[in-house]
Design a protein around this nucleic acid. Structure first.
Lengths: 198, 198
DNA sequence: AATGAGAACGGAGACAGCCTCCGTTTTGTG
DNA sequence: CACAAAACGGAGGCTGTCTCCGTTCTCATT
């Protein structure tokens, strides 16, 4: 008998193999064709049938969340670097850029992310990563506010929304990088306490 | 012989009838199901076949642009009201709100609009209305800058992007109105010249 | 009114995705 | 090696897009 009193059968080897193949194929397709890519094509490229894909990942969001897992870990890792910075405003700024990059990993990613952030549906696999980054953003904002460099009226959630928006502009509209920079500057001017300039 | 030397046959009556029915059905469906609604359903509700729909409006964008025509006219009409305001900052603010409402007329509208703004494809029927509102925005920004109330670094196009973004947040993410207001405030703080407060 | 030319119609059908269901195959275990 | 559970795969039902072409409708002419 095992510790939990339930002698579980050892998981089959092909499961992990297929899962990995699916994730790799999905990442490739998300990268090149956006999150709206054909799941049939992903399955075919992974060398499995449609049934297998849907058994592993019942919805597009589930597959997306799994693919995003790696990137989420990178984001967490970046937080360590950001913490090194003494200046809380610079930290906030870096964090927002990191967020923005995370959100624009694949074209069309902001939509399902916003849907998850809004609905708070515990079944949606994107809800967890979403809530995590919102909380982190609130932390950075509070730190910068304590230092007196960010307006008190600003909420972390507002800047999360701003970051998603910029990511959306980048992916959907694909405006040139210059315009994007001006929008970022506009936002930065908006949240900084007067008299604080980089 | 007619003036242009080409005796054209009088256009058939059913053409106009069908066109109108299609536009009405489309507006209803765009309103309730977003711009991604089923065109088949639109055709059925208008009481015409799919072929007729596609003959009148070869692409989804063409149909969308035609439905938007009415709203575009309302937007132009609003400009007259806005011109009444003496304060150029208030005018800019009003204009941005009007833009935002226009962009969020239907859920999913910002995507095709941004695509048109970017590509500058003369075949895309959304390019014209897009360019028009961008130019108008630039006017408002210049006026406010001349009065010294808006930073010189701000471009009209930036605020156009900001307005589309907020519209996107409203439609796609459907964040609560409070958060939206805070984002608007953030943007307003960003473009206003220091020391200028409503 | 009747006729005819041509414009406009409509829906069948080819195609692409989504997703499920269930007969077949693979895999771990005794 | 044999058995049962688990996983597989792809056919098939469904919805939606868009085209093609035989049929119908209108307008102009007589």
């Amino acid at each position: 008998m095992s510790a939990n009193g339930q002698q579980a059968r050892k998981p089959r080897a092909d499961v992990q193999r297929n899962r990995t193949a699916l994730l790799e194929a999905a990442q490739r397709h998300f990268l090149t064709h956006g999150v709206g890519t054909s799941l049939e094509a992903v399955a075919k490229e992974a060398g499995v049938g449609a049934g297998t894909l849907y058994r592993h990942f019942p919805t597009r969001e589930a597959l997306l969340a799994a693919v995003l897992q790696t990137r989420s870990e990178e984001l967490v890792a970046r937080q360590a670097d950001i913490a090194q910075l003494g200046d809380p405003v610079a930290a906030l700024e870096q964090w927002l850029r990191a967020l923005e990059e995370y959100f624009s990993a694949f074209s069309g990613l902001p939509e399902p992310l916003m849907a998850a952030a809004r609905a708070q549906d515990p079944d949606n696999p994107l809800t967890l990563p979403c809530d995590t980054v919102i909380s982190a953003t609130e932390e950075y904002v509070r730190a910068a506010q304590r230092a007196g460099h960010v307006r008190e009226s600003v909420r972390g959630y507002d800047l999360f929304l701003a970051a998603v928006s910029v990511a959306w502009l980048k992916g959907a509209g694909a405006t040139d990088e210059e315009s994007l920079d001006r929008v970022r500057a506009l936002i930065a001017t908006g949240y900084r306490q007067q008299g604080t300039q980089a």
